[in-house]
Design a protein around this nucleic acid. Structure first.
Lengths: 353, 353
DNA sequence: ATGAAAGCGCTAACAG
DNA sequence: CTGTTAGCGCTTTCAT
């Protein structure tokens, strides 16, 4: 007896349900019923035994395509991300996988590279393959694609982004609360002149974080100054660096900044380092997302943790529900953020900038 | 006219080949031939036109399950990784995706969490789903699974790991050359007492890097001292930190170290920082892999770049070949590494440790 | 050049 | 409780 009890037949000769039925001495449909958890009660216990034995003995594995064709389900879900290389997404993907776990679903992950056409092509490709559902992690605020998805009837959920016109469940970190955490942390430290390196405004996260930044600044009695807001074209290091450069070139004074995400914060690090501005001594920085390794940056980054893994986990749950029960009310589940204080923030030095 | 020329029908009413044939006024089999690149020459040009028009008009999309069932191919490839959250793998996955691009293949990525049983279960699940091929990025040196895979006849390739007993093509970074780069860099800087924080020896990469380290030390005239080698259980920060602690506790002197990968190097950073040993002033460190953000660590990490993306790209190519032509000679493609010098290495301070 | 017929492996009525 | 029948949507002989 080797490790696995059933031997693996070579692929060419994969046994089929017919083979199992034949060995068990029953009709294929009986074998099908016996093999299937749900229909098993319909068949005689001893027959079930014979079928199961036969299946075991032959190393029978159901052909998922045949089954999918018949049931018009693939037991496959798709996840659409801008770029898996962005450290924000792998934990989210793991969350989705883990959430799908046990339901028999497999996850296919596809990258769009923030390219609209590519996104459409990829979604179409997955729909062709008849994925049973989709988790969208791309962040555009308005996008015909979502309406098309609505129309097409493919169940989908939004993860880490909110819907504007779309009617789908979504799981998002509570950005408003998160930005509040960041702003209040800085104000608590004594900062008043606080800048915002905002993300792209056509994304739901970039947009809402910017709006919330303004709201919290006003509300907490710090002076919101439009001159202290710059925009990064994209949630990446390079665009963040460019935005930071622009801000510095304005010659306005500030002692702290909130970046729209950690990658943008990293871009700020780069520019500041180059110009010999010290973090946090001269400028305190708060990031957003708490990506892996944020604790290893120089200095370790104070940031808002959004729980990407949990977002994915919950997203999978909603997706499963949406698949099960097509007419679903679109709900939005907020995941509460938390602040992780590290070394990129401190009290403002008296005077200076 | 809107963006996409063909309208998307709702999923329930997806048009089939029959529908297309009906609209075009031909038999389904003719429609099939017309739609398929390969068989198109067999049918009259004007008929082809009518069929294509009909398909376009209906927004026809072939059902990949039906096609897969018939042709016993799924046009799906699987990639097995220990953990997608390890920054080494996303670029590799991108490489594979991009390499598959255009061939009509979709990639499914699955994590094993370095769990043997989980790995087996996942591979079985993918084989059940009749993936057409597999890219294995898990690094165990001997593993029954590979032989089973050999026996099962599923085409597969090894990426970033080498085969011991398996008969499959592999794409690996040339670890021997890479470690040579690291060792010679340190020796060139003037180091002689060089330690090695090795990876797990049951992995092909951990094993070969260790062996090469020894070889290069001997060969370049630095004294190889077994006391200067410690082993991390796994390629992660924590195990790296534990190994570093062990090394420090031995009280042997050294001025530099080569870590088996970047994550282990990060673990070394943590311990060294805690004990107030400065990098690189007191100890120079060279990592391995050049993961994303290695340039943002404190200090920026000198490391050996292996080109994970290229490994994936090439791996996809080999996989496609293996799928096409089942009886393939197992070849091993080496990808040349390069050294990326940053701030974690410098000449040894005279005297000290 | 096109149509007819069969079947990939499975499940789901419908009978018995 | 089990067998019969039919068909998911497609490709592919085999005829014509």
């Amino acid at each position: 007896m080797t490790h696995s009890s059933s031997r693996k037949p070579s692929l060419g000769t994969m046994p089929t349900l017919r083979d199992v039925a034949h060995v068990a001495g029953v009709h294929p449909s009986t074998a099908s019923r016996a093999l299937n958890e749900a229909t098993r009660p319909l068949v005689n216990a001893s027959t079930v035994g014979r079928v199961l034995d036969a299946a075991e003995q032959l190393g029978y594995q159901p052909n998922s395509m045949a089954r999918g064709l018949k049931m018009s389900r693939t037991f496959t879900a798709g996840m659409i991300v801008p770029d898996l290389t962005n450290p924000l997404f792998p934990p989210m993907a793991r969350g989705i996988e883990d959430g799908l776990q046990g339901s028999g679903y497999t996850l296919v992950i596809a990258n769009t590279d923030n390219d609209l056409d590519k996104e459409r092509a990829i979604v179409e490709a997955l729909v062709n393959r008849r994925v049973d559902g989709l988790a969208m992690a791309t962040a555009r605020r308005h996008h015909g694609l979502l309406q098309e998805l609505d129309a097409s009837g493919v169940p989908y959920v939004l993860v880490n982004r909110s819907a504007e016109h779309a009617s789908a469940p979504s799981v998002v970190s509570d950005d408003h609360a998160g930005i509040g955490l960041a702003v209040r942390h800085l104000i608590g430290l004594g900062h008043r002149r606080i800048a915002h390196v905002a993300g792209p405004q056509q994304t739901s996260t970039g947009f809402s974080r910017h709006r919330s930044f303004r709201w919290w600044m006003d509300n907490e009695g710090a002076e919101f100054d439009p001159d202290l807001v710059v925009f990064a074209d994209w949630f990446q290091e390079e665009p963040g660096a460019r935005a930071m450069t622009e801000l510095l070139d304005r010659q306005t004074t500030f002692t702290a900044l909130v970046a729209a995400n950690d990658l943008i914060a990293l871009g700020c690090y780069d520019v500041l380092r180059e110009r010999d501005v010290r973090v946090p001594d001269d400028v305190s920085i708060v990031g957003y997302n708490d990506i892996p390794f944020a604790d290893q940056f120089n200095p370790p980054l104070t940031t808002v943790r959004i729980g990407s893994y949990e977002i994915g986990l919950k997203g999978a749950e909603l997706l499963l529900e949406a698949i099960r029960d097509q007419e679903q009310t679109s709900m939005s589940v907020p995941i509460p953020p938390s602040l992780v204080v590290r070394r990129s923030t401190c009290a403002p030095s008296t005077g200076s900038r």
